[in-house]
């Protein structure tokens, strides 16, 4: 059986809001490593990988590895019924085809349980080798989201280039072009406001803005975002979930035909 009690229930709500538009159905895996998910979008352009480590839960009990197939839209509907400050507990009996979400208000004066049907999902997991990236950019997540949103009103694709100058986001469309350059900036009041650029080699990659904008739905999960880029390889866009784990998106680039 499985019982996971998450005091910061709002976090699970945010996780679902950040992936439900990208992925329809996914297996949530529960093991000693943590509560995790790996799923691809229907066009096979993006993969989301989530890890919430056991230490982040007030109670993390799963006596064997369990994989639970869930429709993410349905799961999001259920989690929307939880308050942002609620404690959320996931429960599943061995061999059951349902999962129960229990929502407790912080003052314990309201307790709700929602039972959701599980589904069988055949999903193959991808192996992501450790890579040495040409460039790694860490910046405020809200700034990155703002840039992706702004550029998508001009064009459909974004070219992300890292040079000595900084990181450049460019687009081109029928009405014109747009370029946003962010330079390294560590002279900030709070560390999460810094832009840090580690460059081993200059790199330039093109991505669909529709996908980039979809990934930025994870912005409420973290003040910062990390972009790991290598020529000709998918980008890794990572939002760290404080003291618990991460949500990572692997996004395939556009390539020359």
């Amino acid at each position: 059986m499985l019982e996971l009690r998450l005091v910061q229930g709002g976090l699970l709500k945010k996780v679902l809001e950040s992936i439900k538009d990208l992925v329809n159905d996914a297996n949530f895996d529960c093991s000693a490593t943590g509560f995790s998910l790996q799923a691809m979008d229907s066009s096979q352009v993006a993969v989301v990988a989530l890890l919430l480590r056991p230490e982040g839960f007030e109670r993390y009990w799963c006596d064997r590895n369990i994989s639970m197939g869930m429709n993410l839209n349905n799961m999001a509907k259920m989690l929307k019924c939880a308050g942002n400050d609620d404690i959320i507990t996931l429960k599943a009996e061995d061999g059951s085809d349902t999962v129960t979400f229990m929502f407790e208000s912080p003052t314990q004066d309201k307790i709700a349980d929602f039972e959701m049907k599980l589904m069988d999902i055949n999903s193959e997991r991808l192996g992501f080798p450790e890579a040495d990236y040409h460039a790694i950019v860490r910046m405020p997540s809200s700034e990155f989201a703002r840039i992706c949103k702004d550029l998508s009103s001009i064009g459909n694709t974004v070219v992300i280039s890292v040079t000595k100058e900084g990181v450049r986001f460019s687009t081109r469309g029928d009405i014109g072009t747009a370029n946003v350059v962010c330079r390294q900036n560590t002279a900030v009041d709070k560390p999460e406001e810094a832009t840090i650029i580690e460059m081993n080699e200059p790199v330039s990659l093109t991505f669909g803005l529709r996908y980039m904008n979809s990934l930025t739905k994870a912005t409420p999960l973290s003040n910062t975002v990390t972009l790991s880029l290598s020529s000709g390889l998918p980008a890794v866009v990572e939002y760290r979930i404080a003291e618990m784990g991460y949500i990572r998106f692997y996004l395939a680039p556009k390539i020359e035909e």
Binding site: M40, V47, R125, P129, Y250, A252, P253
Partner: peptide, 14 residues
Amino acid sequence: TQKQSTITSFFTKR
């Protein structure tokens, strides 16, 4: 011209 690549062309299934 550019075309959209897929994730499965970069990473192998385990």
